[in-house]
Amino acid sequence: MKWDKVITSEMEYQNALKRLSEIFDAVPDTPEGMEAELLVTLIEKYEKEHFPVSMPEPIAAIREVMERKGIKDKDLIPVMGSKSAVSLVLNRKRPLTIDMIRNLSDFLGLPVEVLIQPYEINGDRKVGV
Rank of each mutant, 00 (worst) to 15 (best):
I43W: 05
F24S: 11
S84F: 05
Q117A: 09
N15L: 12
T8D: 13
E32N: 12
Y46E: 02
E113S: 15
G123E: 01
E22L: 15
I98K: 10
T41K: 14
T30Y: 06
G123Y: 05
I71N: 02
I116C: 05
A36Q: 02
A16T: 03
K74T: 14
R92N: 03
L108A: 13
R102H: 06
D73N: 06
S54E: 15
A61V: 08
L20P: 11
P28L: 01
E32C: 01
R63S: 08
S105R: 08
R63I: 13
V79R: 07
I23L: 01
M1R: 09
S82F: 06
A16Q: 04
S82V: 13
W3P: 03
R94D: 04
Y46Q: 12
G81R: 07
Y119E: 02
I71C: 02
V86S: 08
L88F: 08
P28F: 02
K93F: 10
E47I: 12
P31L: 00
G70M: 03
K2M: 11
E57R: 00
L90T: 09
P78D: 11
T97K: 08
R19P: 04
P118T: 04
E32I: 06
R68E: 15
P58E: 14
E22P: 04
E32Q: 12
R19I: 09
E120C: 08
E57I: 00
N122F: 12
V89D: 06
E49N: 13
I116P: 01
L108F: 11
G33K: 03
V27L: 06
N103S: 02
V89P: 04
V27E: 15
V6D: 15
E67F: 04
K2N: 13
E44Y: 03
W3Q: 09
E64A: 15
E47Y: 03
R102Q: 04
